[in-house]
Design a protein around this nucleic acid. Sequence first.
DNA 1: CCCAATTCAGAGAATTTTGTCTTTGAAAAG
DNA 2: CTTTTCAAAGACAAAATTCTCTGAATTGGG
Lengths: 153, 153
Amino acid sequence: MSIIFSKSCEYGLQAALYLARQPKDSPAHLREIATDLNIPYHFLNKVLQTLTRDRIVVSRKGANGGFALARSPKEIRLMDIVRAVDGQSSLDGCVLGFPACGDETPCPVHGQWKSAKGVILDMLEKKTLAELGKGLDGKLEFIAQSMIEAAEK
Amino acid sequence: MSIIFSKSCEYGLQAALYLARQPKDSPAHLREIATDLNIPYHFLNKVLQTLTRDRIVVSRKGANGGFALARSPKEIRLMDIVRAVDGQSSLDGCVLGFPACGDETPCPVHGQWKSAKGVILDMLEKKTLAELGKGLDGKLEFIAQSMIEAAEK
DNA sequence: CCCAATTCAGAGAATTTTGTCTTTGAAAAG
DNA sequence: CTTTTCAAAGACAAAATTCTCTGAATTGGG
């Protein structure tokens, strides 16, 4: 599990990234995505259902079916996926766990944490799937390679 | 649970902070700490055992026993506690979960995440219990208040 | 010196949360 | 209809969190 995301969310982000790289008008199959990204089939099923309900991806049943992004990758921010899967509140809250911590009654690291979180939120709010997919251009093999190495352990 | 720490770690940080505010030569009892911070007694027991084994706090049994910091609050950084409880590796790893992500084969957000993590690690490495305790001076009631509100939910 | 009370140490069980799998159903295409 | 593919409920497993219980060290009082 990543530091800040649940596994569901991690898988959701990976899958969305996968779909962003997919040629237009050719939806990807659950089976294909799960295999390529080395994600448990049925767990990914559930995550994609969530993203579908949130209208971040669209699904089609039957032959020629599959999953595709609901809108242009330029219009899907990482934050959209995080919010859909882990919920907004997953990024709120005091880093030391003090329930009453806030701008008025700050915990001792409130200020510093706020600026660190600012960098993170900024990243999530501004990065779109389009930019991320571009970052992967010319290294299609990155993900696959990544997963092969993981499987070897 | 905080975004980046386990509950164990959160409790460890809170307890250490508590001990830093404690008058010299008067160790705090487990029962007292757990009650004041609203932490499950036996879970805190375990966390404090970890911190004791790591020589961040010292313990004494029997009457007049209890827990105290093993050295001056000025010499205990947040990172020491995080490392002891959650382990160093809890802060490593790709934020999107790609196992092969690294400086040579970066994931699309590797750079941004690295700088965000830099701010966090910097905070953990530089902030000592002494500075944090000072931050609480004059608001002894902060923690208690915090916990009362939490309990009301 | 011995005993009783106090307090931490630690193993391990129970619970909760999170992640994974099983199974059945429903929609679409040909 | 038959095949393909997503939808969804719910069982199961693993991990994190919380609780139970027993033991061991220390102190102070008889």
